[in-house]
Each structure stands twice: as structure tokens, then as C-alpha cells.
Write a protein that binds this DNA or RNA. Structure first.
Lengths: 248, 248
DNA sequence: CGGTTGCTTGAGATCCATCAATAGGAGTGG
DNA sequence: CCACTCCTATTGATGGATCTCAAGCAACCG
């Protein structure tokens, strides 16, 4: 209850979608209604395993989750990170089977949204449709940025860029401010996300600390020089298409 | 005119979408009608530059294109590769401005599809909607696979995996068979796609040739041992969700 | 033909992975 | 409340995969 209040009037999903379209009070009620089938999964628990059939859209209401692939050689790659308010699949179709697994990082609260229900909501309200499409666009932009990082950025740049990205995404749902945010992932998780070894993640983290850019104690990430961090990791603050946002 | 015949009855877009839904003759007419505003771009020419406003969905009818990011340090990362029949953006929304550039690799024939037109087509036919969503799903799966490759696969594995992926995608639109296909990209393009240097792409290509897996002369890629190549690069043939396909 | 572009090969440098060992916390059970 | 264990963070040393710089060559083209 401390990290993100879920009640009948709003939740992280709605808080995020407000940035994508000018939702009416009625729209918000419709969206919250989609999320009433809540389900808990413990930290590091499985949500859906690769090869399973999807039984509905998975929506993260609280906590952090991720999609990942477990490789034949024992390595793991996290494909996407899902924060509160994030939909784990595109909202218009369900695959016959998943080509990746979904797992919890922290304890998570999930909603399992039936595809027909969300489609009906999008049909009924052009603002909901717009917000959902905007969300899909943002998710795609985040994924593109990950490709760029993995392909062409150094370890420290990747790390810094990720920290900036998370800052922006968490701010959207009210879970971060200018000073920093809770970063409830292990260095091994970061390694699987960034395509690095845990040892090198640790050293890159040291570099960022040594450069006076961040502080990371326990699970709290604090910025000491946000502008400097953004510059050092070539982070472009406009990349989430927030210009279409209607801040509440 | 040799690579892919475009006429009033069918084109590469329709040929691909047939795999995603059971389209009627009427559906196919609707889809072809979307593509009549053809436009040519020369090899290596710009299609849309980063920061520009999108004026419609870009659809590749013939030739190869890509989306890429030009980095501050002079490096380039290709984010997605677009083959004949590929839509370069999700079909439900246009961003205010592009966070990446679109460029031609070979000479390309493009259609610029107005967003309202494609939305109307999807509204009018649930089969068209299904096919478009399937296409989006496949594109997302390809992008995920790229993330996995960049993060956790060796250079030779990345290359082999890409060659297998292209084989499958080109087969969908009738541009490849069991023996191989035309690969009209330079080694520098491959490097920017795979996050490698051109020198190392060359050496990895040599490795695959040396292992008796492929032949690459001129612009023709020929398989000498497709099963071996797939095994060596851990390629999963089911990953494009073709089980939902209705082969014609 | 000269110039350009793309492919190939060599040699040395660098970034990052791997292996290994230590230390600090958090939980657990006695 | 202590001993124990596990997990995570940290640091060192070594090796390997890939990059960068450099040069030669072949094909194409005006």
C-alpha cells in the first residue's frame, strides 16, 4: 500500500495513460474497471512462461516485472522492463503462445485484462483508444532505445541511459522525483537487461559514483548531477513522446 | 519489375498479410487500394529524417529499407530492417516527430498510407484488422529477437540468426526459397544492424563460410547447410507466430 | 583509366567476460 | 541472541572477443 495506492478511482495504469490523451472521468472509470481481477506474484516468481498460451493481457499495477528469454547456453536476456502502469503486450491481439517469459522482479500486483474488454473500451472511447496507442508508441520507443544501447553504447553509457529512462518512466506514474527513485533490482538483473556481466555492471556503477553523478545505497538511487548523467549517457529527454502529454 | 511484381491485384503487402488472416478477395482489394500513392527512393536515400513529422505510414512495396539512429559519436545503429511488404510504423497512431530516421538500403518503392485510410480499412473488415495486428506482433517478435542477439549472442551467432530470420521473412513474400535469397546489403550495413564492426562482420562471415554453412557471392546468399546454420545460431523457426498463418 | 566503394587480411589495443575470493546483510532456526 | 547460510555487492587477476588502425585488392563507373 505504500508504493502505489490502488483504489476504485485511479491506479498506475490510469495515471500513465493520462499522459497520452485527455481522458474524461468516465474514461478513467472504464479503465479502472478493466483492472479489477488483481493477482499477486511474489518477487522472482513466474507470471507466464515461454511457450504458454496467453490467457489475457497482463497489466502491472504495482511492482516491477520483466519479459525475458532464457538462452540455450544458460544466459538470460531481459527484453523489456515493466513498471507500474505498464501493459506487457500490445492491446489488440493475443499470440497463440509466448516467445518469451514474463517474470516478477519485486512482488507485483497484476491485472489480467481480457482482450475483448480492452477492445470494447477502445471502441467506446476515442480518447481511450488514443491513450492506448500512445502507450504502445512509447513502449516501442523504449525498446528501440534498448537496441541502440546494446548495439552501440559502452557499458557506462548503457547504465546511465537506463537510469535516466527509468527516471522518466517512473515520474509518469508518480514514483520518482528530481532527487531519485527506488531501484529494486539486483546488479544481476541490470546485467541481464544491459547485456553485461554482473561484475562489469558493478564496475560501471562505481564509475558513475566516482564521477559524482549518482548515489546508490540499498535500493535507493539518488541523482547527484542529473544533467551530467544525461550528458554522459547521451540521453534525449524528448524520446518518450511526452509532448503529446496532457499533464494533470 | 523483376524483384516483385506490383499490379492492381496484389503486392508484397497483401502477400505478407495473407499469412496473418484469412483475407477475402474484397479485403485484398481494399489493401491494395491503400498503396496507390507510390514513391521511389534511390539506394541510400533518405525516406524520413529523425525529428521530422510523420505525414503518413510508410509502407515498403519493393526493395529494402531500415530505421536507424545516428549517434553523437558518429556510430550508427540500425534498429529495424524493412523488407517488401513491411509497414515501418504501428498502424494506429502517428508520432508528433520521429525518434529515428528511415532510410533506403536498395532502391525502394514506397507507399505513403494515410492513417485514416488504414484505420477505416481495419474498421470495415475484422480480417484486415486481424492481419494488421498479426503483422505488428511479428514485427515486435523480430525486434525482441534483435535485443536478445545484441545482448547475449556472439558475433557469428548474431549473423547466422539474422540470415535465418531474413530467410523466413523473405519466404513470406515469395522472395526466398530453400536454396537462399538475394542479400542486397553491404557488410557495413550488417555491422550497423548487428552492433559490430565491419571488420568483424567480415571475419564472422568467413567463419560461417569456413564451417560449410553458407555461400555468399555477389549479392546472393546460398545455404549449404540450413539446418546446421539454424542449429549454430540457435534459431527457433516458430518465433514468427506463423502457426496462425493461412498459407495460400 | 583514375577514383570510388566494398571486401579482405594483419597486428595491436581495449573493453568486457570469466574465474576466484572476500565481505556485508538479511533471514532462519536453534 | 547467536550461529549459520544464502544472497548480493565488491575487488583482483587473467584471458578472450571484438575494435581500431592500416594496407592491399577487386569491381565498378564515369
Amino acid at each position: 500500500m505504500s508504493t502505489g495506492q490502488t483504489n476504485r478511482l485511479t491506479n498506475s495504469f490510469v495515471r500513465k495513460l493520462r499522459h497520452g490523451a485527455c481522458l474524461t472521468a468516465e474514461d478513467e472509470v472504464q479503465l479502472v474497471d478493466l483492472t479489477h481481477t488483481a493477482r499477486q506474484v511474489a518477487a522472482r516468481g513466474d507470471i507466464v512462461l515461454e511457450g504458454e498460451e496467453a490467457r489475457g493481457l497482463v497489466l502491472v499495477l504495482e511492482g516491477w516485472a520483466c519479459s525475458y528469454r532464457q538462452l540455450e547456453n544458460g544466459k538470460r536476456q531481459i527484453v523489456s522492463l515493466f513498471l507500474p502502469g505498464d501493459l506487457c503486450q500490445p492491446f489488440g491481439i493475443l499470440p497463440r503462445f509466448l516467445d518469451h517469459s514474463l517474470g516478477a522482479i519485486t512482488p507485483v500486483t497484476l491485472a489480467q485484462v481480457p482482450l475483448p474488454a480492452i477492445q470494447a473500451a477502445a471502441q467506446a472511447s476515442p480518447r481511450i483508444a488514443e491513450a492506448l496507442w500512445w502507450d504502445l508508441l512509447v513502449a516501442a520507443a523504449v525498446d528501440r532505445e534498448r537496441v541502440v544501447s546494446l548495439g552501440r553504447r559502452s557499458a557506462a553509457e548503457r547504465l546511465g541511459h537506463l537510469l535516466c529512462e527509468l527516471h522518466l518512466r517512473l515520474t509518469l506514474v508518480g514514483l520518482a522525483d528530481e532527487t531519485g527513485y527506488d531501484l529494486p533490482v539486483t546488479q544481476a538483473d541490470l546485467a541481464d537487461l544491459l547485456g553485461l556481466s554482473t561484475v562489469h555492471v558493478n564496475r560501471s556503477l562505481m564509475d558513475l559514483r566516482g564521477a559524482g553523478l549518482i548515489t546508490l545505497k540499498g535500493r535507493r538511487l539518488a541523482f547527484r548531477d542529473l544533467a551530467g548523467l544525461r550528458a554522459a549517457s547521451f540521453f534525449d529527454t524528448t524520446y518518450l513522446h511526452l509532448d503529446g502529454a496532457k499533464p494533470t
